[in-house]
Amino acid sequence: MIPYPARRAASALTIVLAFSLPACRDDAGPAPDKRADSVPAPTGAAPAAKPEAPAPGRTASPKTTPAPTAAKAEPTASAAAPPPAAPPDPAFDCDPLLTPADVKEACGIEVTAPPEQSPDDIGESRTCSRRWSSKEAGSLSMLVLRHGNANEAKERFTSIGSDISAMPDFKAVTGLGDMARRYAKKGASGDPIYTIEIVKGRFDVLLFNPKVTLGATTVGPVCDLDKLEKLAAKVVGRIP
């Protein structure tokens, strides 16, 4: 017979085991398999990085690689160097082109230059003008214009040709410079201004004088159109 204290200890052990051990049932199913992603990574291996989800309301755009830019061409020595500057035009003295003695010889009229006349030669303004006058025949004027080149002078001459060809007494003059024409232009008072225009090289020359009628009195011209041609021949021969 087991003593009472020993039996009491055995009963207590039986109660403890009954609560601590799981119950064994014949109808219990197998334990569920563990998921592959719950298996811990081997020791020493870095965990796989998970893709970052885009922020709400935004869609992830694919990254684009910029196209390569073409290399800038290095300027050549000839392109970098500026063209040489053109030499300045030399001064041109207008006084020798036409003198009072020339007018006397070609037109038979003595003329003088007014004291207020400008003595300036062709410079930066590219033009010069001279005027002579007589008491009985009025005035005679000369205008000289120097263009950049001969083509410019011809283009200016021909650009207004259609308007001038409709003027009274128009005539194309041959054998005088590169181009020449003569005509009678109507002045502000309605009186004719006898004019001849010549192009030689870069120069455009106009010689002109009016015929003014005041009542029964007529003043001028110093040179009519035929005499202007003779005068123009002298001027053309002195243009370089």
Rank of each mutant, 00 (worst) to 15 (best):
L143R: 09
A166N: 04
A153I: 07
N209E: 05
D178N: 07
T14R: 10
L206E: 00
I239S: 07
V111M: 14
S20K: 05
V111N: 06
T64F: 15
V199N: 13
D37V: 01
V103W: 01
V173E: 03
D191V: 05
K234L: 00
V144M: 09
I2L: 04
T14D: 02
I164W: 13
E124C: 07
A55M: 05
M167V: 12
D95V: 13
T174P: 08
P168E: 00
G175M: 14
K72G: 06
A77Q: 09
K186L: 00
A85M: 08
T59S: 03
A12E: 08
G138N: 02
P42S: 02
G190W: 12
A67W: 04
V236G: 01
A137N: 00
T217P: 01
P66F: 15
P66H: 06
T64Q: 12
P56V: 13
F157Q: 15
T43M: 12
P84K: 15
V212R: 04
G187L: 02
R8F: 14
T174N: 03
S129K: 03
L228S: 13
P42Y: 10
P115T: 10
A232Y: 12
T14Q: 02
G215Y: 09
V236I: 14
I160H: 11
M142A: 01
A55H: 09
M1A: 04
L13P: 13
S134D: 01
A79S: 06
K104N: 00
P83C: 08
V222W: 14
S11M: 15
P47I: 13
H147I: 05
L206S: 08
G161H: 11
P40H: 10
D204N: 08
G138A: 09
A31H: 05
P87G: 02
D93M: 01
N209R: 05
T59P: 06
S129G: 07
L176Q: 01
N151V: 06
K72Q: 07
T127D: 04
P83H: 09
D89T: 06
I160E: 13
A9N: 14
P40G: 07
G161E: 11
K34W: 09
A55N: 06
P210H: 10
K200V: 10
A12H: 00
E74G: 01
